[in-house]
């Protein structure tokens, strides 16, 4: 396995940071998670929006017990990532603060929080909704642009080099199934995915 091979999953976090910026001038800049909360920050309707989305239905049942943060594998090693805090900001309506939060992108989607929540809040799904909403607003880490464009062009998330395909044949593995870029483009158009991806690239 060649070390110089570009593995998108091993990209340094700087790229991620670079990507996480909205179109200039369109959105407020990132608000520090610890900054005092000002009156104009509140969007009380936000929680209703989120709970109307698939996976967010139970959001408002949260009683802030901290189980999600306590059992989050990432939170145990991160100084900033706290799933409960993301839920809290959503419930309070601190929309810009939560959508521009860099920690939003630290969820590993292991679903431990979802499985253990005593109030059946699908924490990981709420975070996915927040991420989807952030992307709509133009915030998206670089890695997802790469994964997304690869899927559109090849059908799969990683571009598999020819060398590897040849090696498969050598060791007697059957050839890989074909991708269908044409179908991918159609689906991406229908779901609005291609638009989101373009927005991310412009940013």
């Amino acid at each position: 396995m060649s070390k110089t091979q570009s593995n998108p999953r091993e990209r340094p976090s700087e790229t991620a940071k670079k990507g996480l910026r909205a179109k200039s001038g369109e959105e407020t800049a990132e608000i520090s998670a610890t900054a005092p909360i000002r009156a104009q920050e509140f969007d009380p309707h936000f929680k209703h929006e989120v709970s109307k989305t698939h996976g967010g239905e139970k959001l408002k049942q949260c009683f802030q017990c901290g189980t999600c943060t306590s059992d989050c594998p990432i939170a145990r090693f991160s100084d900033s990532y706290r799933p409960r805090t993301l839920i809290r900001m959503t419930l309070l309506g601190l929309k810009d603060r939560v959508l521009t939060s860099e920690t939003l992108w630290l969820c590993a989607a292991c679903f431990t929080c979802t499985d253990r929540c005593p109030q059946d809040v699908e924490v990981a799904s709420v975070i996915r909704i927040l991420r989807n909403t952030a992307v709509e607003k133009g915030y998206m880490p670089q890695i997802f642009k790469e994964l997304g464009s690869s899927i559109l062009e090849t059908g799969v998330a990683y571009r598999i080099p020819d060398l590897r395909l040849k090696k498969r044949a050598q060791i007697g593995l059957p050839p890989l199934p074909k991708g269908n870029p044409e179908a991918m483009t159609k689906l991406a158009k229908a779901t609005g995915f291609s638009k989101l991806l373009k927005r991310g690239e412009q940013a």
């Binding site: 698939h54 996976g55 992108w105 989607a109 996915r128 909704i129 991420r131 989807n132 992307v135 998206m140 997802f144 994964l147 997304g148 899927i151 059908g155 799969v156 998330a157 199934p177 074909k178 991708g179 269908n180 179908a183 991918m184 689906l187 991406a188 779901t191 609005g192 995915f193 989101l196 991806l197 991310g200």
Partner: peptide, 18 residues
């Protein structure tokens, strides 16, 4: 499989519908 594509999970953070 004669043909397939990514299961979709990697881009769930971008667009759930996709």
């Amino acid at each position: 499989m004669p043909e397939y594509n990514c299961c979709g999970l990697p881009i769930d953070p971008v667009n759930h519908s996709m």
